[in-house]
Design a protein around this nucleic acid. Structure first.
Length: 611
RNA sequence: GCUCGCAUAGCUCAGUCGGAUAGAGCAACGGUUUCCUAAACCGUAGGCCGCAGGUUCGAUUCCUGCUGCGAGCACCA
């Protein structure tokens, strides 16, 4: 029976609910799942494994106070199965569970391996993310979007959806015109040669120079500088000329555009490969600019769109503070908005999706409200199925990133600095002992852990202040901390195997043996770890259904803490055990190792075997 | 001005459906290694959950108003 790796209730809660539910009065009207959903870990560890709040039972008990209900339930509850002890504590019923039952309920599914996602839901979802512009630099800010979009793709798949991961590259538009203006009119033929390495970044620097020059001229012109005004006007005329030629596919310009665009695309491919991000479909703005303009003309003729100050657009009065949504510029060229109309159409037509998610920063919230509203007014009913996932910006300690001020951290510099630091601080000590390839691979995995976890471990509507030094510290609540706790578990399994001690593969399917092995897991750290592992599916469920990977981050950090408490405690050693206790601990370590690695991978973070 | 977001420990942040004594990380102080990885673990200290009302048996959580910070608001994407 295929099953998505996410559930709204945990395995332990379900096992307990099966015993608790029959004891509750039918008048309470609670289903088995309701009861399971009301069970949660108690406030403090010494209160037991699960707690049941009796507040909602009040009406069924003629309004009796919850503490009295809890006391009554504690009396009635059978304690010879999964529930070993039931104690009323105020309005709560605190339950201590039988170790063998806990282990049997939680560990086998994890120890078997969670594997690849299975489609269990009807809703097919497209997640569009990344959307970098060609001819512009790729920097840390873009990494938040990539990390977030990729994690959402993975989480929705784990949640049981069929997902189309889509990218949408900005390969046409005003920024291209500015870059090509600089490239063609300012650079000499000799200067037009890009470096062998980092062609895309080099192109981005040309765009930055062009843009800075235009801003400078504009500033001077406003201050009354006639010369600057003349230069600005000329440049603007030229960029418009380039833009028009680009949209009409002028052969000469097209050749330059194709050549330079390719430099950026190659760099993006390299970045995505390093980031372990894969797209099922890449859309290009260049494939929707013409269809977009056609749509604008069509709906202008139909009277849905109107002309205003030379531009074409629509007045969406629903958005009071800025009702006019421009769809075609006065010079006849297209805008981001123009292309978004055609793109939405294309997505639904080509992929038969049921839901379309746009991962784009929060500043575009009004834009997408306009897009979806406009689509609806055009009679495109599927606009209802479009959904913008906004997120806050990434800033530097000294303030917002600015290409102009040169304060951006470009991707390549970020990568090199992280890899260099990780090797020097943690991995160089293994030189000679490990192969260079393994050291490189481990540094790569840790760098991904640091940057992705850093970007994801924060609610989407919180700003991130990116402090490279702090993130490279790798202490505390970080990706590498979680990777480290998994590596330790891997190390335990590896050393146990060397000592000839392995998990009996038949154990996970043998109820009797499971109970016997599980009953040995009585140390507080072991019980706590089983309880923590029980939360994995719920964490994935919440992260996927709320589209918030940060929820999984928070869970994995608490799981890693439980793992490290177990690994550190000498009373929980594995290798010096035998028999049922050895099997119980091997089962626990195997399950925890799988949970951590699988959980991290749902965030796009690989786990090194050792570190 | 209008719209949206944020405000919780010294700093950076969690806090599921409104429920027990509001939790982590960093920084500070003290402790743990005859080592299944000290990138770890344990302990101490640290709080007007921005302010004022409202709803509720119960509010950090929901509602209203206010204050502070940030972002967006016509030819950029």
């Amino acid at each position: 029976m295929p099953e998505a790796h996410s559930r709204s209730t945990s395995a332990l809660a379900q096992a307990v609910a099966a015993v608790l539910h029959p004891v509750l009065p039918a008048e309470a009207g609670l289903s088995l799942d309701d009861v399971a959903g009301m069970l949660a870990p108690p406030r403090a560890k010494n209160m037991g494994d699960l707690a049941f709040g009796c507040f909602r039972l009040r009406p069924a008990y003629d309004g009796a106070p919850p503490p009295k209900i809890a006391a009554e339930l504690a009396e009635k509850l059978p304690t010879d199965g999964v529930i070993a002890q039931a104690v009323a504590a105020g309005p709560f019923l605190n339950l201590t569970l039988d170790p063998g039952s806990m282990a049997a309920a939680v560990l086998p599914t994890l120890a078997r391996g969670l594997g690849e996602p299975v489609v269990t839901r009807d809703e097919k979802v497209m997640v569009e993310y990344s959307q970098p512009n060609t001819h512009k630099a790729f920097h840390v800010g873009h990494m938040r979007n990539v990390s977030l979009g990729d994690a959402l793709v993975r989480l929705l798949r784990a949640h049981g959806h069929e997902v189309v991961a889509a990218n949408y590259l900005g390969d046409v538009g005003a920024h291209i015109a500015k870059c090509l203006w600089w490239f063609l009119d300012v650079l000499t033929e000799e200067e037009q040669q890009p470096p062998n390495d980092g062609k895309g970044e080099w192109l981005g620097s040309l765009y930055a120079k062009a843009n800075n020059q235009l801003v400078d001229w504009e500033t001077s012109a406003k201050a009354g500088d006639a010369d600057a005004q003349a230069k600005l006007d000329a440049a603007k005329a030229r960029t418009t000329d380039i833009l028009l030629k680009l949209e009409s596919r002028d052969p000469e310009l097209l050749a330059v555009w194709e050549k330079t665009r390719q430099w950026s695309l190659e760099e993006f491919d390299e970045i995505y490969a390093w980031s372990k991000v894969v797209f099922d479909r890449v859309f290009y703005e260049s494939e929707v600019d013409e269809p977009g303009l056609k749509l604008v003309q069509e709906y202008l003729d139909k009277g849905v769109f109107v002309e205003s100050e030379g531009a074409i657009g629509i007045f969406n009065e629903e958005i009071k503070h800025m009702p006019f949504f421009m769809l075609r510029k006065g010079d006849g060229t297209s805008l981001y908005s123009t292309k978004d109309l055609a793109l939405a159409n294309l997505k639904f037509k080509d992929f038969a999706i049921d839901r379309s998610i746009y991962v784009v920063d929060m500043r575009q919230s009004d834009h997408f409200k306009h897009v979806f509203l406009t689509l609806k007014k055009m009679g495109f009913e599927q606009a209802e199925l479009c959904h913008h996932v906004p997120y806050e910006m990434v800033e530097l300690p000294e303030g917002a990133m600015s290409t102009r001020k040169g304060t951006v951290i470009l991707f390549r510099a970020l990568r090199e600095r992280m890899l260099g630091h990780l090797q020097e601080a943690y991995l160089d000590k293994y030189r000679g002992e490990w192969s260079d390839a393994e050291i490189d691979e481990t540094a790569h995995a840790l760098a991904l852990g640091a940057i992705k976890y850093g970007m994801l471990n924060r609610d989407v509507n919180q700003k991130i202040v990116f402090d490279l030094e702090a993130w490279m510290n790798l202490e505390g609540n970080t990706g590498p901390y979680i990777q480290y706790s998994a590596a330790r578990l891997g190390s335990i399994l590896r050393k146990a195997k060397e000592a000839g001690k392995v998990l009996d593969p038949a154990l996970v399917d043998n109820a009797e043996a499971l109970r016997a092995a599980g009953s040995e897991l009585v140390q507080p750290e072991e019980r706590e770890l089983i309880g923590a592992l029980d939360g994995l599916r719920l964490a994935v469920f919440n992260a996927a259904s709320h589209l918030k990977p940060s929820l999984l981050c928070t869970y994995l950090h608490s799981l890693a803490k439980a793992v490290n408490r177990f690994s550190t405690n000498k009373k929980c050693k594995v290798i010096d055990q035998d028999g049922d206790r050895l099997q119980g601990r091997l089962l626990l370590v195997t399950a925890a190792n799988e949970a951590l690695r699988w959980g991290l991978w749902q965030l796009g973070i690989p786990s090194p075997q050792r570190m």
